[in-house]
């Protein structure tokens, strides 16, 4: 019997339960449309959280993602809205820059032996500061490409719409699953989170892996920032404040061990969906207040952390 998948099953079961409850209680809750809206509304968060999953499985944390989303959005606004660049050209500049940003954070963590928490905290201030400095105002983006992006998609039965952001998310998801389970880099991510010292002694290229992990997280955050501009048609320095917390929460609720070493990208998607379903439930209910979302998410977090703790304790005794 493997306890590895247990948190994942628990998340899945809780998600189905809550969704089923909503579907029974409210008309229109259990529809394809609601499901796909969950995906399209939360696509940017899911993309961010996938990056966060990598970081957390490797035993680190990345507090800078919310700010990177904002910075990426502001850059989109500036380059496309103000300087009239083609969006694709803008993306081609923004994504490598963000990757570099993450790589530098990873380098600091590895070379100077600093805690990821404090390095990415500095990164968070830096990216947000840079975004604010570039523009304090929200910059509108008006480009035919954006209209095309908004129009692109597939109609599905049940008045549902499979849009660009959802498709992009699915692409990221597939690549992430392949990388995590079918590439050496993915194995290194798990290895680092399992035991940093052992990983090093087993010959894992720790420097490359650490830098790669944080670079990936920043790349995905910047991509999420671009997706966010698809929703808002604008870039603003104060968007996505606190998104890092949502992402961390989703990762943990998705069954990933916050201390690293175990977890699944798919679980994180379930985690975001869970948070989305709670919100949708509260909206459909109408009488419940929004702060319940925070409390329920806090309780879920507690539940999963204690669950993981118990599972691990069982393991130690087993061995």
């Amino acid at each position: 019997m493997s306890t590895r998948y247990l948190p994942l099953y628990v998340t899945g079961a809780l998600l189905s339960l809550l969704f089923g409850l909503g579907a029974i209680q409210f008309d229109g809750f259990g529809s394809m449309r609601v499901v796909l809206n969950l995906f399209s509304d939360n696509a940017f968060l899911m993309i961010t959280a996938i990056g966060m999953t990598l970081v957390i499985i490797s035993g680190g944390i990345d507090l800078s993602v919310g700010s990177v989303i904002a910075l990426s959005g502001v850059l989109c606004g500036l380059l496309i809205g103000e300087y009239g660049w083609h969006p694709l050209a803008a993306f081609a500049l923004i994504l490598p820059l963000a990757t570099l940003f993450g790589a530098i954070m990873g380098m600091w963590i590895h070379v100077y032996k600093l805690q990821p928490f404090i390095v990415t905290l500095a990164g968070m201030f830096f990216a947000r500061g840079l975004a604010t400095m570039l523009s304090e105002e929200s910059i509108a983006i008006d480009h035919p490409f954006y209209d095309a992006v908004a129009d692109f998609g597939f109609s599905l039965p049940g008045n549902a719409w499979l849009g660009t952001s959802t498709l992009l998310l699915l692409l990221v998801l597939v690549v992430a699953v392949l990388v995590m389970h079918y590439s050496r880099f993915g194995a290194y991510v798990y290895a680092l989170g399992g035991n940093h010292q052992s990983a090093e002694l087993m010959g894992v290229p720790v420097a490359k892996a650490t830098i790669g992990i944080y670079a990936t997280s920043s790349f995905l955050a910047a991509l999420a920032g671009i997706v966010f501009t698809f929703y808002t048609f604008s870039g603003y320095a104060l968007t996505a404040v606190g998104t890092e917390l949502d992402a961390i929460a989703a990762v943990v609720i998705g069954g990933t061990l916050l201390t690293g070493g175990s977890g699944f990208v798919v679980g994180t998607i379930l985690g975001v969906l869970m948070m989305g379903v709670i919100q949708t439930y509260i909206i459909f209910d109408g009488s419940l207040s929004s702060w319940w979302t925070k409390i329920v998410i806090g309780l879920l977090l507690f539940f999963f952390i204690v669950l993981q703790k118990l599972l691990n304790r069982g393991r130690v005794q087993h061995a």
Binding site: R184, A187, Y188, Y190, A191, G193, G194, N195, Q197, S198, A199, L201, M202, G203, V204, G261, S262, R315, A319
Partner: peptide, 17 residues
Amino acid sequence: NLLPNLSVAQNLFLGHE
């Protein structure tokens, strides 16, 4: 000095899969 969270096969071949 192996990785408790990885499978036996992964531990045997990490870096040489």
